[in-house]
């Protein structure tokens, strides 16, 4: 048994067995046994240590991640009220089928996409441009980098509070500034495009600097000779950016797109605090999926519905994740 073990684990036993010096039979036996024990230990170690390494994470994950996920899945098949969360009435897929005809659901879904796009696209484009500029030889570059990262340190609550004041209709600074150009006061919160724009700017403000640094880092790892040969070919700065920088950054760009997509699908704090209510405006003009989930669960007390919405969000993200995966594979192949 022992010897078999040793043979079947040559890589690990080699060290132990190989170093044992020849000696008296008894000692050799002992040494052999010790080596065997050791190798057994190693084998067990090799086999089980991965599980040991992941177990702390999975222990917490099971308790605080998986359990809630499954529980919510179970709850989504029931009619549950916040009045008495333990009393569940089985309704099958009703909560899901009802979503299909639920205009508020579709409204919040489309709001989520619109806000997602108008926050992600300009944000990443600006980050790309800024990273390009920061990549020049530049005085005070560290100052610029740190300054642009400060919004990242600001909490959603603090950021939204100040933006909501700046966007005030009658006495906000933005309308005051526009007023200098003869533009009438805009009811940012009341309008649908304006409110979505306002919420998007909060997201843009918080994340542009962070993404800039990510891009900058990626840009700095683009090999010099690519630029040099492009310069030799007479490419202008802009052409170099377009034909050297951007293609080299493709994986990074794709990644930031996905992370931003996940973030904007789960968008919650900004729209909630912007108007101060989970309805996301008087006619839900900036209610996102996360907000709708919250309204159903904690204002209307329909926990089953809220759970179903949560699972729909989950599904949307999985689809996005799959798309990302496929595109990434494509990219890898084309390289």
């Amino acid at each position: 048994m022992t010897s078999q073990d040793m043979r079947s684990a040559p890589a690990t036993s080699a060290a132990g067995a190989g170093t044992s010096p020849p000696g008296p039979d008894g000692a050799d036996e002992r040494e052999k046994r010790r080596a065997a024990r050791r190798s057994k230990w190693y084998q067990r170690d090799a086999k089980w240590s991965p599980y040991a390494f992941i177990s702390p994470f999975f222990l917490f994950f099971a308790a605080f991640g998986l359990f809630p996920l499954l529980y919510t899945g179970w709850a989504s098949l029931h009619r549950v009220s916040l009045h008495s969360p333990t009393e569940m009435e089985w309704v099958g897929l009703h909560n899901f089928t009802r979503l299909l005809q639920d205009e508020y659901f579709w409204n919040s879904l489309s709001n989520t996409f619109v806000i997602g796009i108008i926050s992600t696209v300009p944000q990443l484009l600006m980050a790309l441009g800024l990273a390009h500029l920061l990549n020049y030889k530049l005085r005070g570059s560290m100052f610029f980098r740190v300054a642009m990262l400060t919004p990242y340190a600001t909490s959603v609550a603090a950021a939204t509070l100040v933006f909501a004041m700046l966007y005030g209709r009658d006495f906000g600074m933005i309308n005051w500034g526009l007023g200098l150009f003869g533009i009438d006061n805009i009811d940012w919160e009341g309008g649908s495009w304006t409110s979505q724009f306002a919420v998007a700017t909060i997201v843009i403000w918080r994340w542009t600097g962070y993404n800039t640094l990510i891009y900058l880092a990626a840009m700095q790892s683009v090999p010099n000779d690519l630029y040099e040969s492009a310069a030799l070919d007479g490419a202008s700065r802009w052409q170099q950016f377009l034909h050297v920088t951007v293609p080299s950054l493709r994986p990074t760009i794709l990644f930031t797109v996905v992370i931003s997509t996940i973030g904007s699908t789960q968008l919650f704090g900004e729209p909630l605090l912007f108007g101060g209510s989970p309805s996301g405006g008087a006619s839900n003009q900036y209610q996102t999926l996360g907000l709708y989930l919250y309204e159903q669960g904690w204002t209307n007390f329909h926990l089953g519905r809220a759970s179903a919405i949560a699972w729909m969000m989950f599904l949307v993200l999985i689809v996005i994740g799959l798309v990302y995966f496929l595109v990434a594979k494509r990219l890898q192949k084309s390289h």
């Binding site: 916040l82 939204t160 509070l161 704090g269 909630l272 101060g276």
Partner: peptide, 18 residues
């Protein structure tokens, strides 16, 4: 009414108390 809607929404944020 909502008292200081914004800030208290933070509070509300969630069954806060629920």
């Amino acid at each position: 009414a909502r008292l200081t809607p914004r800030l208290s929404a933070v509070t509300a944020v969630v069954l806060s108390a629920t």
